[in-house]
Structures are given as C-alpha cells and as structure tokens.
C-alpha cells in the first residue's frame, strides 16, 4: 500500500510546526471561571488548549472525549468543581463515578492515559488551571501527536483521497 509513503511525506512537512491540540471540557461554574481568572490575572500559559464549556461536569460523556480524538485532538482535559462545590449539588459526584469508568475503558482499549487529564479546578484556582494546562501541554509535546488515532483518521474514506490529490497539486 502507498499508505507508508503518505504518512511519511505528510508529517515530514508538518513535523516542524506540530503543536499539541488539546480539547478541554470544563464546567461553567468552576473551571471555566478559574480559567477566566487565569486570563484576567494575566497569567501566561500555553495556548494550545481549546475550551468547551458545559453547564456541569456531570454533562461530560465518554463520547465527548472520543469525538475530540476523532476530530484530531492529541489530548483531552476534563475538569469541574471540587467535590462538594457543585452548582447543582451533586453533578460532579455523579461525574466522578463516570470518569472512573471512562478512564478504565479508554485505558483498556489502548488509549495512552497520559493524554486524558481529569481535574477539579475551582473558580479561585486560576493558577492551578494554568499549571495543569502547562503540564498537559508539556506531556503531550513529549508524547507527540496521537498517531494511533490519527491513523484511523487517515483511513477515513474521504480524507484519504484528499491527501492523494493534495500531493498531486503539490
């Protein structure tokens, strides 16, 4: 198959500029506010995290994490209020039970769990958020792109053709 040549010449050009792509699913009341605080306090932290805010960490499903990887993410952060602080009383307690399941499920299926970071960040913990992001970015830089999943993306029946025709013109 010409797959090898394909994967070879694409990253070859892209390798230099590769930057981690991290998607963060965060709760609106704590982590998002925490991230906001990090911003308003002018803390400088890595810009490679794209935040998607949800009403509560209890809304976060394993599908979100998989979808993020499906769309080419190299890492995912999941974060909500500390236990006891949920805006909806118990959303994060329920979430915590599920997160344990997500973790075990993904790990079992061969996901490198260093790519998925779970955390509690309160509205006051701007610093903690900035540190977590820096830490995650550093870790994923070290791990490199999520090649295994991105191989599945390359198998995608329409993207495959795109790489071919891109090569044609380039």
């Amino acid at each position: 198959m010409s797959d090898e040549t394909k994967t070879e010449d694409k990253p070859a050009a892209a390798e230099k500029e590769w930057q981690p792509r991290i998607i963060a699913f965060v709760c609106n009341w704590c982590t998002y506010a925490g991230a906001d605080l990090a911003g308003t306090s002018r803390m400088v932290y890595e810009p490679h995290v794209r935040i998607i805010k949800l009403p509560c960490s209890g809304r976060i499903d394993v599908s979100f994490i998989i979808k993020a990887f499906e769309q080419g993410a190299d890492g995912v952060m999941v974060s909500g209020c500390h236990p006891g602080d949920c805006h909806y009383t118990a959303g994060n307690y329920h979430a915590r039970r599920r997160f344990g399941g997500f973790r075990d499920l993904l790990e079992f299926c061969g996901f490198d769990m260093r790519r998925v970071v779970f955390s509690w960040v309160s509205a006051a913990e701007g610093k903690k958020w900035a540190d977590l992001v820096n830490e995650a970015v550093a870790k994923i830089r070290e791990l490199g792109p999520f090649k295994e999943y991105q191989k599945l993306l390359a198998e995608d029946i329409w993207r495959k053709e795109e790489t071919n025709s891109d090569r044609e013109t380039g």
């Binding site: 198959m1 010409s2 040549t5 071919n164 090569r167 044609e168």
Partner: peptide, 8 residues
C-alpha cells in the same frame, strides 16, 4: 501521483 492512485 502514485501508480496505485492512477490505477484507482
């Protein structure tokens, strides 16, 4: 364009 692609 690879040969295989041409064939395709």
């Amino acid at each position: 364009m690879t040969e295989e692609h041409a064939a395709a």
